[in-house]
C-alpha cells in the first residue's frame, strides 16, 4: 500500500519535471524569436548610435545576443541544474535573491486572494445552488456573469479610482510606502498596500469557484439521495450540511488547487496596475527587458507552483474520495 502510493507520487513528480523542462524550452524558444532587441530596448537607440563599435560589442556580449539561442539555453540549463539561477541583467543582482524577495510579496497577495476567493466563492456557490432560480441564485449568477466578462485589470483600475484616488483610504500602489526605510515599514503598511490588489484578484477569482460550486450543489439537490433525505424528514438545513457540503467540498477543493494558475494569470495584470513588486510584475519587466535569466527563473518558479497545485488537486482526490481510494487499491 505505502509502496504503491510512493510509486504514484513519484510518477506525479516525474511528470512535473518533464513538464517543467518543456516549459523552459518553450519560453527560451519564444524569447529567441521575440522581436524585441535587448540592446535597443535597454540601452536606447540614441545611446547605441553614439557608442563605439567596441562598446556595442561588449554590450552584445553582456545581453548574450552574440551567441546562438541553443548554446545559451544549454549554458543556462547547466547552471540551473547545479542550482545557479544566474544574475539578472537588468538589476545586476542574483536572480535567486530577486525572485525570493518578489515571491514573498506575491505569496501574501496571491495567497490571501486565493483563500478569500475560495471561501467566498464556495459559500456563494452553495447559496446559489441550494435553490436554482431563487433570489440568491439570480444574484450570485448575475454577479459571476458580470465579473467573468470583465477583465481583472479593469476591476483593479476601478478599485484604484474609488478607494485610492477618490476616497484616499488606501495607498495607490507599490508594496511599501515611498521614502520610508525598510526597517521602519510596519505590517500595517504592508497590509494596507495589499488590500486593493488582493481585492481585485479575489473579486475575479470568486466567479469561477462560485459557478462551479453552484452547478455541483444544484446537481446534489436534485439527486435521489437528497430526495430520500427529505423523505426521511431531514430539514433543508440539515440536507445542505450533511449531504450538500459533503458532496460538493471535494470537487470544489480540487478546482481550488487547480485554479492557482488563474490567480497567477490575474496577478500579472493586477500587479502591473498597482505597480506591486510581485512575481507577476517581475515577469512583465523581465520579458519586456529581455532579461533572460530573470524571466526563466520566474517562469520555472511559477510553473512549479501551478503544477504543484494541480498535483495537490490530483492527490487530494486520490486520498480523500473513498471511491478513488478503493479504485487504486484494486488496480
Amino acid at each position: 500500500m505505502a509502496a504503491e502510493r510512493g510509486i504514484w507520487i513519484g510518477k506525479q513528480l516525474f511528470r512535473m519535471m518533464v513538464l517543467l523542462g518543456a516549459v523552459t524550452v518553450a519560453v527560451f524558444a519564444l524569447l529567441s524569436v521575440s522581436p524585441i532587441d535587448p540592446l535597443t530596448a535597454n540601452v536606447g537607440q540614441t545611446a547605441l548610435g553614439s557608442m563605439s563599435p567596441e562598446q556595442v560589442e561588449k554590450l552584445r556580449e553582456y545581453w548574450g545576443t552574440d551567441q546562438p539561442a541553443l548554446s545559451r539555453f544549454l549554458a543556462w540549463a547547466g547552471d540551473f541544474i547545479r542550482g545557479d539561477m544566474g544574475t539578472s541583467l537588468l538589476y545586476r543582482r542574483p536572480v535567486k535573491e530577486i525572485i525570493w524577495e518578489r515571491f514573498l510579496n506575491s505569496v501574501w497577495l496571491m495567497g490571501s486572494a486565493w483563500v478569500l476567493s475560495g471561501v467566498i466563492g464556495f459559500g456563494l456557490g452553495i447559496l446559489a445552488g441550494r435553490k436554482q432560480g431563487g433570489v440568491a441564485d439570480r444574484l450570485v449568477t448575475g454577479y459571476c456573469m458580470l465579473i467573468a466578462s470583465t477583465p481583472a485589470f479593469w476591476i483593479a483600475m476601478i478599485l484604484l479610482l474609488i478607494f485610492a484616488v477618490h476616497l484616499q483610504w488606501l495607498p495607490i500602489g507599490l508594496a511599501v510606502p515611498i521614502g520610508v526605510a525598510a526597517e521602519q515599514v510596519t505590517a500595517a503598511d504592508r497590509i494596507s498596500h495589499m488590500v486593493l490588489p488582493a481585492a481585485a484578484l479575489s473579486l475575479t477569482g470568486i466567479s469561477n469557484i462560485a459557478m462551479h460550486t453552484r452547478q455541483k450543489m444544484a446537481e446534489v439537490m436534485e439527486s435521489d439521495y437528497v430526495l430520500f433525505a427529505r423523505a426521511r424528514g431531514e430539514t433543508e438545513r440539515s440536507i445542505i450540511w450533511r449531504h450538500g457540503i459533503r458532496n460538493v467540498a471535494l470537487p470544489a477543493l480540487t478546482l481550488q488547487f487547480a485554479s492557482i494558475s488563474e490567480i497567477f494569470g490575474g496577478s500579472v495584470l493586477v500587479e502591473q496596475v498597482f505597480s506591486y513588486p510581485g512575481l507577476g510584475q517581475t515577469a512583465v519587466t523581465a520579458g519586456l527587458g529581455s532579461d533572460v535569466p530573470l524571466l526563466m527563473g520566474v517562469t520555472v518558479i511559477t510553473a512549479a507552483i501551478v503544477f504543484g497545485g494541480n498535483a495537490v488537486a490530483n492527490i487530494l482526490y486520490g486520498l480523500v474520495d473513498p471511491r478513488m481510494k478503493n479504485r487504486r487499491k484494486k488496480s
Binding site: D224, Y225, L227, A231, R232, G233, H243, N247, L250
Partner: peptide, 28 residues
C-alpha cells in the same frame, strides 16, 4: 415523514455516496 410514514426507496442512488452506511441508517 421519516417517523410515522417511511419510504423504502428503489435503488442505491438514494444513498449518499460519501456517507458510511451506519450513519445513513441512523439518519443523524
Amino acid at each position: 415523514r421519516g417517523k410515522e410514514i417511511v419510504l423504502v426507496p428503489q435503488s442505491v442512488s438514494y444513498l449518499d455516496p460519501l456517507m458510511k452506511v451506519g450513519k445513513q441508517v441512523e439518519n443523524g
